[in-house]
Design a protein around this nucleic acid. Structure first.
Lengths: 343, 343
DNA sequence: TCTAGAACTTTACGCGCGTAAAATTTTTCT
DNA sequence: AGAAAAATTTTACGCGCGTAAAGTTCTAGA
């Protein structure tokens, strides 16, 4: 039980009867030493409790075992969920995930990139803010650090993009809504921060055309990341103004839909597809709480796990190939319609 | 525009016509050099873009400018909110916040502590898992690193605790509910992970005694961090079994309440205090989405900002005093009742 | 048993910066 | 103006480890 305090690798190597470079090699790759040597080190490790100094390790090394994860807004459960999956996958692969939130601001996003750059990460997984992002800052960063974008695409940035297929999302909801009732009106923010929103609107218009219906887009004002409140107020005024020409609302994303549901409740409008319901509300994302709204939200679900694992795999490939892929790839995962009570 | 690439401080010092130690001093505290010197450095900084190597900086330094932030579950918006405030405050004070989530598991929590230890942080702000935490691991950690606990208290651990006054939370909701209608039944998890839950139950029983009412505690089974689903299923069976002896339910926290609201909706029970309502539901925390539930949730609100700023201040004090406070303090902030439509 | 090749040890250097001590310059005060 | 105080420079060392090169020991295969 003499958990002696070890100061450095030199000392630890001496205590385990090996040379420091051998021990160093072990810590960089346990399989690179002979099995008997490995056992000796690991036994000593149990007796003496030693961890190499992180700063010394990384100082004299081109690229570290760090992987940066940047999300636009961590208090959004969708990104919290993404971050959790990605973090776990990186850690399992022996990397050191470093999670940074841009808190919804481009200055913070750029700061995060600067901060990451000085950590010399092996790679970075980034979900950019979107419209608000400082493109040139991201471009400069991607030149220096192998980067995979996820969730929101920015054309040409990074070595790969992994996200969800917005067309698939919208097609599934529109098809379902059209065949089960009145065609949907589309509800969104006028100036969405996220590029996915634009793709969803376009996809909606095309899907409606395919069904031979006239598209109705209701765009509400609002800035920032308080989507629920924007949705709530927007729904109030849109309903009051009679902007919804059918009894079915398709929201650009779940957080807006949560606001819409709140507004409907406040106005005494029953939402759902049963008798006595005034409105149907559907949406996209499968926000972690969308199962618990009243009524539970019908939505097109992200394949969170697929996006996380594929973007991580892409990054690992990149890292193994020295950071350059030559060919920028875009991978989109289709949605999975989750029919609940709201539509 | 010749944004020359600077390799190290030596080079940068030469270019700005100063000695390296002076520049080093500047980076450790810009006010420690003469104003004219400072200007010279900052002008050079604009021309040459140089940032000291983080690893080299920290290697030969007792304690760094890092501040660890550990939360039990980052996908819980309550903790996301806490983390966001604290992160911002630390960054503003010139520290480098490092955010880690324990993902609801004690192994991960201990790993986070190990990981932090090797980063030699100036201090750590930690919201422990609670019951699941490895007490001895935390105790060992607190011996080495100045630590302030927040949100969940663990007796005797860390140099200070900053949280919310659960008695105040419960008193306000119970008082309000008793004077505005039938006395509340208390709804909670049987084996809550979080120590606050126990305090809330106790406070409920005492508050009911003060009002001369019999307490009714409905405890439901369930493990993990899926509180909404636990609340939903628990509410279904409790309602079916007639466990609630009054028309008023006081939930231990908002996430459970969100589940209860979902169950009520599914059973066609109208929640609220108006005519035609079968149940009143109230809760504690002021979860970021509790404003958007249907109906909007009446709840006792955390003073997130106060907890964040005070725990950060406590930690800064600690750091300035060399990590030891001598006297462990506990600071509790009272709740602020937010009356909405649900009760 | 011999030998190629892998694994290891020894030796040596460098990374970029913190930091201490002594010498020097600049500022501030009398 | 002179002296004390403060800021800066010079010099020098160390942090803990990565890593390369050269020599040595071990392992595996014939």
């Amino acid at each position: 039980m003499s958990k002696h305090k070890i100061r450095n690798m030199e000392q630890f190597a001496a205590l385990s009867g090996l040379s420091r470079p051998t021990v160093s090699k072990y810590f960089n790759d346990p399989d690179s030493v002979r099995p008997t040597t490995r056992r000796r080190i690991e036994e000593a490790l149990e007796r003496y409790e030693f961890r190499p100094n992180i700063y010394a390790i990384n100082q004299n090394r081109r690229l570290t075992k760090n992987i940066g994860i940047v999300v636009p807004y961590l208090a959004d459960p969708v990104f919290a969920e993404h971050a959790r999956s990605i973090e776990t996958l990186c850690a399992e692969a022996g990397f050191r995930p470093i999670l940074l939130s841009s808190h919804g601001g481009s200055e913070q996003e750029s700061e995060n990139l600067d901060s990451l750059r000085s950590l010399k990460p092996a790679g970075v997984l980034m979900a950019p803010l979107g419209r608000a992002s400082d493109r040139s800052a991201i471009e400069r960063f991607c030149r220096d650090v192998p980067t995979v974008l996820f969730d929101s695409n920015i054309e040409g940035m990074g070595e790969a993009f992994v996200g969800s297929d917005n067309v698939s999302f919208v097609n599934q909801t529109v098809d379902y809504l059209c065949r089960s009732g009145e065609p949907p009106c589309f509800f969104e923010m006028r100036t969405p921060a996220n590029p996915n929103a634009n793709k969803r609107r376009t996809a909606y218009i095309e899907a409606m055309a395919r069904h031979g219906e006239d598209p109705v887009v209701v765009a509400v004002e609002g800035d920032g990341w308080g989507f629920e409140e924007i949705g709530r107020q927007g729904a109030h005024s849109a309903i009051a103004a009679g902007d919804f020409t059918t009894n079915t609302i398709l929201c650009s994303n779940d957080r807006l839909a949560i606001g819409v549901l709140a507004a409907c409740y406040e106005r005494g409008l029953r939402v759902g597809r049963g008798p006595g319901c005034a409105l149907r509300v559907a949406s996209h994302d499968d926000h972690p709480f969308s199962r618990f709204t009243c009524p539970a939200l019908t939505t097109a679900a992200h394949d969170y796990a697929a996006v996380a694992s594929h973007s991580v795999e892409k990054l690992f490939e990149l890292i193994e190939n020295g950071g350059k892929s030559g060919q920028r790839t875009e991978t989109l995962f289709p949605a999975n319609l989750v029919v609940r009570a709201s539509a």
